[in-house]
Design a protein around this nucleic acid. Structure first.
Lengths: 105, 105
DNA sequence: CAATTACATAAGCAATGACTTATTTATCCG
DNA sequence: CGGATAAATAAGTCATTGCTTATGTAATTG
């Protein structure tokens, strides 16, 4: 997955809001997500499809309800991009990696 | 600056490409950026304006040329957002924030 | 089995946005 | 000065996109 996909998918506030709720609250059904999303259920389904195509959420069907959850690994392209193009941050990321390596030993 | 602004500004590939070039190559004029951007000079100027409004680039006028440079600090909303919503990544970003705070002292 | 519920898909519409060419503004130079 | 160059702005076009309502599909329930 390219940074392009992740940036574009998270650029919309409503869609990013859905991801945020899933990240905070864990597994949620479409109905649960629709309540409080401020848009219709089809709109939510369309956003969830976009998030799924960007590998940012996963789904499991339970009978007639579908539970969605955030897939944090989908954020990896963003992490990588920041490490590459953050420059100012990059040095600090490197320092972080050093720190992590030392912590892991 | 809100995460919204940064996500939306970096969502466009051409615009993000300009930021990337500035992050890699340092200060560049509009003409230099236009060469290799694949779009016209006005398009580049419009993208630079968007990047500037999102606090992602800075500019300095030198006679009739204007030098742009990346402002990595503008990525902070992204770092913060990832720390909040990355979950899996969160631990590492929290460690990063701690590290940054210690480095700043 | 018919009605209901959960969700996805279809179709259409209005707003946004990324581009273009044309023009403006400002600075440099012969 | 006057022409040329650098960049910004103006105006218009076309594609994308996020929303809506309407409908389809599948699973539960009475």
């Amino acid at each position: 997955m390219e940074p392009e996909d992740v940036f574009r998918t998270l650029a919309d506030g409503t869609r990013r809001g859905l991801f945020e709720r899933l990240a905070r609250e864990g597994e949620l059904s479409v109905s649960a997500l629709t309540a409080g999303a401020g848009v219709s259920q089809p709109a939510v389904s369309q956003h969830l499809k976009a998030l799924r195509l960007a590998n940012l959420v996963g789904e499991t069907r339970h009978g007639r309800t579908v539970l969605y959850r955030a897939n944090p690994e989908g954020l990896r392209p963003l992490v990588d991009w920041m490490a590459l193009y953050g420059r100012f941050w990059a040095a600090r990321f490197d320092a972080l990696e050093d720190l992590l390596n030392r912590m892991d030993q």
